[in-house]
């Protein structure tokens, strides 16, 4: 990752901007069932395999700033939500994510189905994810 950032630095104008958008390093995807204004949390998805990559990205971004290749222009985070009409769509949703994909904790998927069966008509499944954006100036 550090090598990739250094290579990008070499291809930027002086004063150019490097933007990194990636999943938020600490806010995990949250699955809930929503009915009107009521939100029932089901599970927080695990990103075990991905966490190493996220940690590596964080430290690589810090390192190129410490080396003086870039200065930090700012950091922003944001949440975004996806709504699913039924539990079977969870599989499609997860498959859309480039591997390594998040997964349910043990028993989480069964809990989703149980809660869905008990949910009133018109309920939806909500997945809340968070991203982080770092802007570095060359």
């Amino acid at each position: 990752m550090v090598h990739a950032l250094r290579r990008a630095a070499g291809r930027l104008h002086a004063g150019g901007t490097l933007i990194s958008i990636r999943p938020h390093p600490t806010r995990r995807p949250l699955v809930a069932i929503v009915t009107g204004r009521r939100r029932l949390p089901v599970a927080t998805l695990l990103e075990t395999a991905f966490e190493r990559n996220l940690d590596a990205a964080e430290s690589a971004l810090r390192r190129v700033v410490e080396e003086g290749a870039f200065s930090l222009a700012g950091v922003r985070s944001a949440r975004f939500r996806t709504y699913l009409e039924r539990p079977a769509q969870m599989r499609t949703y997860l498959e859309l994510i480039y591997p390594p994909r998040p997964r349910f904790p043990r028993g989480g998927r069964a809990r989703l189905y149980e809660m869905w069966d008990a949910a009133p008509r018109g309920a939806r499944i909500e997945v809340t994810e968070s991203l982080i954006l770092n802007a570095l100036r060359r």
Binding site: M1, A4, R7, A8, G10, R11, L12, H13, G16, T17, L18, I19, S20, I21, R22, P23, N53, L54, A56, A57, Y98
Partner: peptide
């Protein structure tokens, strides 16, 4: 990518780590 070449104004790492 070649180390040298026409420079860019913005490098965007889009969900790539």
């Amino acid at each position: 990518l070649p180390e040298r070449g026409a420079p860019f104004d913005v490098a965007l790492f889009s969900w790539s780590l």
